[in-house]
């Protein structure tokens, strides 16, 4: 009986481990080997990385990806914090508001991109609106190569609309875990709402902030479908280049190389976030 109980946990995690090994670990390892194999030479080399880095679009797509992340994630963080505190303060209709706010989570990113394209394209809603307000005399194309700023703004808006909810959900759960006593104590000492937020909520929210930020930043590095729908080829990002290498150029080695670059970025930023938002030793929340 004893021995059976000892083995039980391992038996229970075996299916999940096996699943991960077959569908995650194995493909992951084969992507790594692919990145170092090049058609022109035997054995392992850095040729794929050279090919990828020397293409004129690589630096542009790296820059775009980082810029987009830098523009989108802070806004999303602020919005998600604001929305989470608002939801938390509600007594009536809380569930309803949460449902509405999390609708974008259920929409695929390509669909989200297309929704925003319908707004921004030449025959789209924004043009019709500006025409009916008499701001323009006929529909003008907005998302064009002469207008890179507009494309950037459209993509950033779509991303903010689509993916703020994922942070919101994590933060709402995190705020719910903070004991009410802290707030009561704070108000006894006469802390203002802002002080309560900055001194109680934010520090105690650290673990949730960590999770939310890591998740969101990694997803931001993988942005693809929204960009493809709104920017086409005018706003190259790393993931789009990966797709091009894999499916247009049938060059799995180069695609794997960029995928590893994205992985490297994700790991670097994860470590950074873990470090910056670390919970001091011996403190439990």
């Amino acid at each position: 009986m004893w021995s059976q109980n000892k083995q039980l946990p391992y038996v229970l995690i075996a299916p999940a481990s096996l699943f991960l090994a077959v569908f995650f670990l194995y493909p992951f390892l084969s992507v790594i080997t692919q990145a170092f194999e090049h058609s022109s030479s035997d054995g392992y080399s850095l040729k794929n990385f050279q090919d990828v880095f020397s293409h004129w679009k690589f630096s542009i797509s790296l820059e775009n990806t980082l810029l987009l992340t830098a523009a989108v994630v802070p806004v999303q963080l602020a919005l998600a914090l604001l929305m989470a505190t608002m939801v938390n303060g509600m007594t009536k209709g809380r569930e309803f508001v949460l449902y509405i706010w999390t609708i974008p989570l259920g929409i695929s990113d390509l669909a989200a991109g297309i929704i925003w394209l319908v707004i921004f394209e030449q025959t789209g809603f924004l043009n019709s609106l500006m025409m009916s307000l008499g701001l323009i005399s006929q529909p003008t194309p907005l998302l064009t190569y002469q207008n890179p700023m507009m494309i950037f703004v459209a993509i950033a808006l779509a991303e903010i609309w689509r993916a703020t909810a994922i942070m919101l959900v994590i933060l709402v759960a995190g705020i719910g875990l903070i004991p009410k006593e802290y707030y009561e104590a704070a108000s006894v000492f006469g802390a203002s709402r802002w002080q309560q937020f900055a001194r109680v909520t934010l520090p105690l929210l650290r673990p949730s902030l960590q999770t939310a930020l890591i998740l969101r930043v990694i997803l931001a590095f993988e942005v693809f479908a929204v960009v493809a729908a709104l920017g086409g080829t005018l706003f190259p990002v790393l993931m789009g280049e990966t797709y091009t290498y894999q499916f247009d150029l049938l060059n799995s080695g180069a695609a794997a190389a960029i995928a590893l670059v994205i992985l490297g970025l994700s790991i670097a930023f994860t470590l950074l976030i873990l470090r910056v938002l670390r919970v001091p030793k011996g403190v439990s929340i």
Binding site: Q122, T144, Y145, G232, L234
Partner: peptide, 10 residues
């Protein structure tokens, strides 16, 4: 290209 609809890139 100068007389092409600039939205052509989509």
């Amino acid at each position: 290209w100068a007389v092409t609809n600039p939205a052509s890139t989509n």
